[in-house]
Each structure stands twice: as C-alpha cells, then as structure tokens.
Amino acid sequence: MAASIKHQLFFPHPPAAVWEFLTDAGLMELWLMKSDFMPIEGHEFQFRNKPVPQLDFDGIVYCKVLEVVPFKKLSYTWKLGPGDGTINVDSIVRWELQEKDNGTELLLVHGNFTVLENAGVFEAMNKGWLDNIHKIAERLNAQQHG
C-alpha cells in the first residue's frame, strides 16, 4: 500500500475559478479550514481545525507553501502533532489543475509522509504481513489437502 491519498474531481468551471477557491483564505475557509494562507512560495501558515484527541491531533496544521504555479499547481507542507511542539505527521499536499474543454480537472495528492517513506518501514511491514498471511494460507491449504 502506497502511503499517499489521492482524489480527483471534475468541475464545470475554468481553472481560474477553481484556483480562487484553493488560494483565497476567505474562500478556503468556506470549504476547508480557517487559515492565514497566501499563495506565496515560502509563506508559512496554519490551518485551524477541531482537535482530534484519539489521534493526538491538536487541530492545528502547520504549513509552508512550496510551489505556486498560478491556475496549474500548488503545494504545501502539512505537519501536525499533539500540541506540545512535537510533530507526528509530516507530509505534503499537492494540487494540480488541468484545463479541459468544458471545465477543470482537479487532482489532490496528499503524500510524502516522510517518517514513513524515509524508513521504508511502512512498505516492508505491510509486505511482511502479507507474507505471513500467505504462509498461514499455504499451511492451511496443505492441511486441508494433506
């Protein structure tokens, strides 16, 4: 399993209209979260959400704008933690807009969970589990047929 989240949507609107909703803090608040976002590379900002105690998430997402290509691309870091100054989740959110004949295709990729990917542990683990399950299945099959 790849440690990234992908969503793709089509909007019957030109890229400029969709872009506005991705980059204007006032409009972002209407659908995403309250923030002090500005579409300027290097700008540091925060999203404020409700805390999620069961996930050790204080509700604040710490971000930094990485890339701004007007009407085409936008990306920022996405870090969060329990509120004691430590970070549990370090990731990147990327938006890509593609102009179509009658609208805009919007792609969201939330990935680069760096703690996971640097380690390679996540993949190894999931593979390890899969192997174990295969072993168990083989053994069970052998018992049935043996």
């Binding site: 399993m1 989240i5 949507l9 609107h13 659908w31 996930l55 969970f113 683990m125």
Partner: peptide, 29 residues
C-alpha cells in the same frame, strides 16, 4: 501498523468530505 493506517484513513475521509463541500460551493456558484 493499524495506527499508521488510521492516520491515512483519517485524511482520506477528511479530504473526501472537504472536496464534496467544495464541489457544492462551486456548483451553487
């Protein structure tokens, strides 16, 4: 590993619901 998967699931659902709101907003427009 379930705990890690839980985070990914959480954000997957988070984005899904946020994007739904965005879709509604843009359609209303």
């Amino acid at each position: 590993f379930d705990a890690l998967n839980e985070w990914l699931r959480y954000f997957d659902q988070f984005w899904e619901s946020k994007l739904k709101t965005l879709e509604n907003l843009l359609n209303d427009k």
